[in-house]
């Protein structure tokens, strides 16, 4: 008798944790603010991708992008390049912040950023430049 009560309590515990698993399975990323940032970044990617390939722009360890070597860019175009990097980083920082906020935990921003930092680097195409732990650059 007592044993079956314990069994039932365990089943209840399992039911409870299954619900929790569903609730934790996904982060909310389908908000208008996040959608706008994704669209903006996707559009900008068309302009940035050649700079990833040439090594002008690299992926930093903190989930942003940086000018790694501007020598291939004519002087006259360098301010445009800086503006491109600045705009991309503004969007990325806003994205990390918005994801944390959309999930009710603004304090998660740093961890969201760290997660993205790793995944951007993991998914970087061969030939792109990524920042190492020692801040030096390495080509994938």
């Amino acid at each position: 008798m007592r044993r079956s009560a314990i069994h039932l309590a365990l089943i209840g515990a399992l039911l409870g944790s299954a619900g929790q698993g569903l609730a934790q399975g996904n982060l909310e990323i389908d908000t208008p603010a996040i959608a706008a940032l994704r669209a903006s970044m996707q559009q900008r990617h068309q302009q940035i991708v050649s700079h990833y390939e040439s090594g002008t722009i690299g992926l930093t360890r903190d989930g942003l992008v940086a000018i790694r070597d501007a020598s291939q860019v004519p002087l006259a175009q360098r301010s445009r390049l800086s503006a491109l990097v600045a705009a991309e980083n503004r969007d990325r920082e806003a994205l990390y912040r918005e994801i944390a906020r959309a999930n009710g935990h603004p304090e998660w921003g740093g961890q969201v950023q760290a997660t993205f930092a790793q995944r951007w680097i993991d998914k970087a195409r061969r030939g792109w430049w990524v920042q190492q732990a020692d801040k030096g650059w390495a080509q994938r």
Partner: peptide, 17 residues
């Protein structure tokens, strides 16, 4: 008693979540 135990288990774990 069984029903109470089932309820208790569910509540405890839900609270844990």
């Amino acid at each position: 008693i069984g029903a109470a135990a089932l309820l208790l288990g569910t509540i405890l774990v839900s609270a844990g979540c």
